[in-house]
């Protein structure tokens, strides 16, 4: 698969479109000795160093370049999660879709399993065959059977490990606010380690509700091994049940928390009487 990707990247970098324009670069991973890091390949580069592992949030690289270089036209070698990240970022003006070409490849079945990935392939699939979706995270799968006290005990045990590195936020392709609520003294009191329950993690969870595209980068970068995506998976599930929104699925879909009821109505209960809005899924 990697050879095919390298070949297609080389072709795309040398191609001109109908207006005679070429891509200015291809965002992908590059191997240098034993190390692999994000890189922008340009026409003529040695593509034998192009890699697809380990996963980095490459759409963040695209976004940083799009913001700083207003004319640049890029390609990106993307997985399913990268493409979903693109959808939510483009929607929020972090990436210019007009200046990006996505070269998608499918993840392996093993990767889908590892990431509990529901869609281990991009819509712009150029290389590879889609693998079957991975299973649900086992903690999420049994979550409904846990009592409030058990849930509390579980998360307390997790959150107490937090060293407040902000790595979850820093690595997240969907975390791009100039001012972060998690750095605001009004919401997260400074000087506490672990951060006091519940603010820090719940603020992030709420902010992720219409953004988290389940790329699992936060969990991989967490030095304390907090199963953050369990929290975000549950938020995603509630978001889908309550407002029918699946982050990353559709560029045209409006983020429901930012728009009116006419634009995205509540799917459960009656907005005129909030007491009728059940917890989602019903009965939880």
């Amino acid at each position: 698969m990697i050879d095919e990707i390298r070949k297609i990247v080389a072709e795309r970098l040398n191609e001109t479109d109908d207006k005679g324009a070429r891509l200015d670069g291809m965002v992908a991973l590059r191997r240098t000795g034993p190390a692999v890091a994000p890189h922008v390949f340009v026409a003529g580069d040695d593509l034998s160093t192009l890699e697809i592992n380990p996963r980095y949030p490459l759409m963040t690289v695209v976004s940083r370049l799009h913001k700083r270089l207003p004319d640049i036209r890029l390609g990106v070698v993307a997985r399913g999660c990268d493409e979903r990240a693109y959808v939510e970022m483009a929607k929020r003006n972090q990436i210019d879709p007009e200046r990006l070409v996505i070269l998608g490849f499918a993840c392996t079945a093993e990767e889908a399993l590892e990431c509990y990935c529901a869609e281990p392939f991009p819509k712009n699939l150029v290389v590879g065959t889609p693998a079957a979706p991975g299973p649900q995270n086992p903690i999420v799968a049994k979550y409904d059977t846990m009592t409030l006290a058990e849930r509390r005990a579980f998360w307390k045990q997790q959150f107490v490990k937090c060293i407040k590195c902000y790595g979850c936020r820093n690595i997240c392709p969907e975390c791009f606010c100039e001012a972060c609520a998690m750095e605001d003294k009004a919401w997260v009191e400074p000087g506490f380690l672990a951060p006091p329950f519940p603010a820090f993690h719940l603020i992030r969870a709420m902010h992720m509700a219409s953004r988290c595209i389940a790329c699992r980068q936060c969990e991989h970068t967490c030095p304390a091994h907090i199963p953050l995506t369990v929290l975000y998976d549950l938020m995603r599930r509630d978001m889908e049940a309550l407002l029918g929104y699946v982050p990353g699925a559709d560029l045209a879909a409006l983020p429901p928390l930012s728009v009116t009821l006419e634009q995205t109505p509540l799917l459960l209960g009656d907005a005129h009487d909030p007491a009728t809005i059940p917890l989602a899924p019903i009965g939880r």
């Binding site: 190390a35 890091a37 940083r64 700083r68 270089l69 590195c165 790595g167 970068t221 030095p223």
Partner: peptide, 26 residues
């Protein structure tokens, strides 16, 4: 980018930190 620092990426290929950093590293 053009000599200006625009970000920090933890190294995911190094055995010591395995793609993780603390707040000082970030």
């Amino acid at each position: 980018l053009d000599g200006q620092i625009i970000g920090v990426w933890p190294s995911k290929t190094q055995e010591i930190s395995q793609g993780k950093l603390c707040i000082k590293g970030w």
